[in-house]
């Protein structure tokens, strides 16, 4: 059933190594520009010269420098890291489950995080972003482990189909419990509804430092697994035939996914769409080889979320949109366009 959907992917695009490396370099430069834009634009007008000075010659007594260093710089870095993590986590899940609709959602990660935060607000009255991050990550990790364990029961270990179905069921269950609490308790709804839309606003350096290790370990692990994921995305039998110990690879991929998506959702709340769409866009760019998909997904995901965050701040002058909304509104049309022109069958 799932194999038929693999046809959704375009045919293999063979590009030469130098072209791909050059592409990575271009993406890196673009990311630099995006982050500069993210630091330069904001509700306080700060001259480009001051922005530059704040970065290279920090003067703690200047208000402008303070804004740049403590608010905008961490925010840009967080947006880039979160975007990269979500995109890579999505690519990992799509490779592992061989289902183009898979994203961190499929392990129940976002919904687990949401339920973690909502129950914590409901029962324990927490209200700081730091505590949110803690409960979000715990919820995400517990859910992902439960889904993975359930998907591994029985003969054949963790097959893509079983993981996918177990994930879908868990997602439905968790969503319903979360909504149940929100319907019955207005205070909780009031408290968490902005967080639930997903945003990188108001996150400071300490929160970043709290989560960055998880994200970085996850990224390194994922990038190191590129070759194995390419093999496993051809099918379990093929991978086993080529001498791969599929159980180990699947376990490591799952760990990387949890670290990346769990960490991302802990900082920024559930930001949808990045994990689903960026891997597709990346695949349209570089083909089926995960050794290239993963680094490209890292950069493209980072660029995408940083730019969306800039838009979220600028689009309405009176107040700020949660970035999770902007990702969907910007990414949706791009995705539809790509599907329309690139999916041949």
């Amino acid at each position: 059933m799932i194999s038929s959907l693999r046809a959704a992917r375009p045919l293999h695009i063979a590009r030469s190594r130098p072209v791909l490396l050059l592409g990575l370099l271009v993406c890196l430069v673009l990311l630099g520009f995006a982050m500069m834009a993210s630091i330069a634009f904001g509700s306080a007008d700060i001259a480009p010269a001051d922005v530059w000075a704040a970065l290279v010659a920090y003067d703690p007594s200047s208000m402008e420098h303070l804004i740049i260093r403590t608010l905008r710089l961490p925010r840009a870095v967080i947006a880039a890291l979160v975007g990269a993590s979500l995109a890579v986590a999505g690519a990992l899940m799509q490779g592992l489950t061989r289902n183009p609709l898979a994203d961190p959602h499929i392990l129940g990660i976002e919904n687990g995080a949401s339920l973690g935060v909502v129950t914590a607000v409901f029962f324990l009255n927490i209200s700081s972003l730091r505590m949110y991050a803690l409960y979000a990550f715990s919820g995400a990790a517990v859910t992902a482990m439960a889904v993975y364990a359930l998907g591994s029961l029985g003969r054949g270990g963790p097959t893509p189909l079983k993981i996918t179905v177990a994930g879908a069921i868990f997602t439905a269950l968790l969503t319903s419990l979360t909504t149940g609490i929100l319907i019955l308790n207005q205070r909780t709804l009031e408290e968490v509804r902005f967080w639930l839309a997903g945003s990188v606003a108001g996150r400071d350096l300490s929160l970043l430092l709290q989560v960055a290790p998880y994200l970085l370990v996850g990224l390194v692990l994922a990038l190191a697994l590129g070759r194995q994921i390419t093999t496993i995305s051809l099918g379990d039998d093929v991978a086993r035939g080529l001498g791969q110990r599929t159980g180990w690879v699947k376990g490591l991929v799952a760990i990387a996914t949890v670290l990346l998506a769990g960490g991302a959702v802990a900082v920024a709340g559930p930001i949808g769409f990045v994990g689903l769409v960026i891997p597709h866009i990346t695949r349209f760019l570089v083909g089926q080889d995960y050794r290239w998909i993963l680094p490209y997904a890292t950069l493209v995901g980072a660029i995408f979320l940083v730019l969306c965050d800039v838009l979220a701040r600028l689009v309405l002058s009176s107040f700020e949109l949660p970035v999770g909304i902007v990702t969907a509104l910007v990414g949706g049309p791009v995705f539809v366009y790509l599907v329309r022109w690139r999916v041949k069958r």
Binding site: L5, A8, P100, F273, V326, L329, G332, P333, V339, R340
Partner: peptide, 17 residues
Amino acid sequence: IRLVLVGVGLSSMAAAL
């Protein structure tokens, strides 16, 4: 396949709104 994928795209935009 295109139907499913376009559906995913449009419904996530609706979800955002």
